[in-house]
Write a protein that binds this DNA or RNA. Structure first.
Lengths: 142, 142
DNA sequence: TTCTTACTTTATAATCTTTATAAATAGTGT
DNA sequence: ACACTATTTATAAAGATTATAAAGTAAGAA
């Protein structure tokens, strides 16, 4: 279960597990949308009538620093937050061909815009990032 | 010259050309950075001592609506604005193979993060978006 | 050129998101 | 259960963007 793993990650990193953190994580994991800080705040109002907005922001920052959560900035006013799952891209070395996994969230926006602009029924996208890996870069430095 | 074309675009769209708009466009075209609204405001302070910040925001919105300018939202507080040039991606129909140009700005962030995470010296990236074009979609609907 | 009208600018205030602060509270290891 | 320290809360502050209304001005018509 994702929540348990997330809590383990917190424990390993020495981050205290408070009821608020538990609830925010749980909400993020179960929510298929990409909630804003305020969405989360409102959603947990019932369970935590006294919780401060600052708590939501603070903890989202903590989760982001630990790598559990991604912050997405679309064009609109407020950031959206996403529990990190396993979707990833590839970074490819142009010299030796090494491929490194690259986790990155939410190019959903690209697909949405593509639909909007082209009228295509978008099914997916692919992206590769090209460059030189550290090893090849240091060899080339000679 | 890009500025002249941009002004033509404004004229065609029925947007009045004011000295402020002229200056903001000129600044955006010449600036290789991705300035914030405040950057622009400060940069034009000398020429327009009485210009309001609202004017900058208003006109950036106008330019965006007309398609001359892209608004980029990185993680930080304020949006950055970019004069639209010709870089673009492709949207590909999986049935008939049609390729449609798809203009989209600033996946610079992806490259920055890839550098940060993998240590690769990033040179570029490619992205394609796949789906069904409207024509093929309507044929399939039978 | 001058006039006219509607769009723009300006100045200001308001709104909204996010962060900072300090006192009260509560996890966690001992 | 205790003590130490991180966390929460409440509040204020900061910063970006938008709304408003009055004054000004671009652009076409006369």
């Amino acid at each position: 279960m994702e929540l348990k793993e997330a809590l383990d990650t917190l424990k390993e990193t020495g981050v205290r597990i408070t009821p608020q953190r538990h609830a925010i994580l749980e909400y993020l994991i179960n929510s298929m949308s990409h909630p804003t800080a305020d969405d989360i705040y409102k959603a947990l109002e019932g369970k935590f009538p006294n919780m401060s907005v600052a708590t939501v922001y603070n903890n989202l920052r903590v989760f982001r620093e630990v790598g559990l959560v991604k912050e997405l900035t679309y064009g609109d006013a407020s950031s959206r937050f996403d529990f990190v799952t396993t979707h990833h891209y590839h970074v490819i070395c142009e010299i030796c061909g090494k491929i490194v996994d690259f986790h990155y969230p939410g190019l959903d926006e690209v697909e949405h815009l593509a639909l909007h602009v082209t009228g295509f029924n978008i099914s997916h996208h692919r992206m590769e990032i090209y460059g030189t890996c550290p090893e090849c870069a240091s060899k080339e430095a000679h």
